[in-house]
Design a protein around this nucleic acid. Structure first.
Lengths: 314, 314
DNA sequence: CTGTTAGCGCATTCAC
DNA sequence: GTGAATGCGCTAACAG
């Protein structure tokens, strides 16, 4: 329990001045290699740990980024968060994570707390109804995921591309009777954009659309399934894996395992349980990775506000 | 954005000394009510926010707890984390979350970082092979989940109870031919303890055990299924929902939907997809809640090291 | 290159 | 009760 060691103790122990120790800590090039290694050795042997709190207060940077996600147990955000963590750890940052639960109010509270904590930057997972103003006020210090803004850097998912990808894949297999199950267009991204992508694909391919939208749940999709199934139906594209799960389940009951089902989310469980299915990977992990990289660069002043769109893949 | 306001600015603005402002901030009773409200008003109007960094450095407490979990995308830990967050937010703490990925080394690194950050306390999700020493060194400042220690408070899952619960439920329905699919006993908890619980239940009920263990994956369970199925088999108890999913899937293919399957984890997907199944809830959320409550109390010095076992439920 | 000197923003002694 | 002084652990000018 080598505690309470201060930079001064190390200085004495190494027979140098406190600032020299500080220089070693901050990787200041203006230190004679011998002195440096000497100090480093003492640090190592004494188990000295510089106090982040003090550093934060002095330098203004706490080496912390805040992450505001909507639901901790959302598989998609989960994957993205892992991507974020990977990047920021490597950059020497830590993360404080908060859950907005799709509440604009909670999001704002969290942002306030994060600022009070002197976090260097923030990554926010957007959602329909999210209040962008407080985020935009952060400027360079923020990156949002899954939602559009001009004021602040963003990493978006290619909602249109995901569905097009699924549609094209099916069309290439010669399917012509392709239905769609999605969620209501109150939800701009998962709902509206993906539905529009479906409609656009139908139009481009000269297909007659057949679709229903409901809630983002297995049950909802399960119940909607029959309404989009005809004797000729060859495939059903779904706005998400959750929906695909419900649809596939119903199809199984209906004995229509001939109908291929596609989802979005790259859930391995889907194709494990239902053979005649596939899932589009929106690139959650990569999106997290990209957003963190963006943020780190911005914090270093190396990069201005940027907008990326994560490519989806099969 | 009223920035860079220090305690001194407030002091001037309120026409008092900085220490008085500090006293107001720390809720020191020795302040004349008038002065207090005067200061509070100035604080409110100026939008002053005391610097957490400075407070942390001075007082030693940063109002932060570290959470070291093994996998961010583990549904179980996810639920527990939500329970933790709920409690600590309410207590005015924030959380910095880190992933150990079942690596003792990474865990230790993370713990070091957390200490350097001056976190008030730590909650660690244990795993087989986890190095307890650094955690135990934290004493009152740590709580571990899902693993045993004497040195430090812990919240464990009732691995035995989960399986007993499932077994009793099945026995009450008159099932006598109950097989088991689990994971290898290298894993002390999910592996060994749950298997032992199965064996104990069998012995108590006078049943002949029939079981196999493998990896903690759908595929593994899927492949093992046939080895524990006989024409007489009435039910299969699984060590986890993941396994149950694989087993149920295989049973469906084998046309043995008469066999009831049970898992552990309270995954709603399981019973949605496979009707003849049920899942035991180990109480992840409650465990998180309990561990956080424990930690907060310990940090306040109100409570000594305690060991809890989370009850499982159907 | 390295030691010395100042504070950073706040909480906590002390005197008044 | 309240203000002035002191120092937390560290970094950033300044000197040498």
């Amino acid at each position: 329990m080598t505690q309470k060691l201060t930079i001064l103790d190390i200085a004495k122990l190494a027979g140098v001045g406190k600032s020299t120790v500080s220089r070693v800590l901050t990787n200041d090039p203006k230190v004679k290699p011998e002195t440096r290694s000497k100090v480093e050795q003492v640090i190592r042997e004494s188990g000295y740990v510089p106090s982040k709190s003090a550093q934060a207060m002095r330098g203004g940077s706490a080496k912390v980024v805040g992450i505001v996600l909507s639901r901790l147990d959302s598989p998609s955000e989960n994957k993205a968060v892992r991507g974020i963590l990977e990047v920021i750890y490597q950059a020497g940052y830590d993360a404080v994570i908060m859950e907005s639960q799709f509440s604009a109010e909670k999001t704002n509270e969290h942002l306030a707390v994060l600022q009070k904590r002197n976090v260097d930057g923030v990554i926010v997972f957007g959602f329909t109804g999210c209040d962008l103003a407080p985020i935009e006020a952060l400027g360079q210090k923020a990156v949002v995921i899954a939602i559009d803004t001009d004021q602040v850097s963003s990493v978006g998912y290619d909602n249109h591309g995901m569905i097009s990808l699924a549609m094209n894949h099916l069309l290439q297999q010669g399917k012509r009777q392709i239905s769609y199950v999605g969620v209501g267009s109150e939800d701009k991204t998962t709902g509206l954009m993906r539905l529009n992508a479906y409609l656009a694909s139908c139009e481009a391919a000269g297909l007659v659309p057949c679709y229903r939208t409901g809630q983002l749940s297995h049950e909802s999709a399960y119940q909607l399934t029959e309404q989009v199934v005809t004797p000729d139906t060859e495939a059903i594209v779904c706005a998400s894996d959750t929906l695909a799960m419900g649809v596939a389940k119903r199809l199984q009951e209906l004995g229509r395992t001939d109908i291929q089902v596609s989802g979005v989310g790259a859930t391995d469980l889907l194709s494990f349980i239902f053979p005649n299915t596939f899932s589009i990977d929106p690139g959650y992990y990569q999106a997290g990775h990209a957003s963190a990289t963006l943020l780190i660069r911005q914090l270093a002043g190396e990069q201005a506000i940027t907008h990326l769109t994560q490519r989806a893949s099969l």
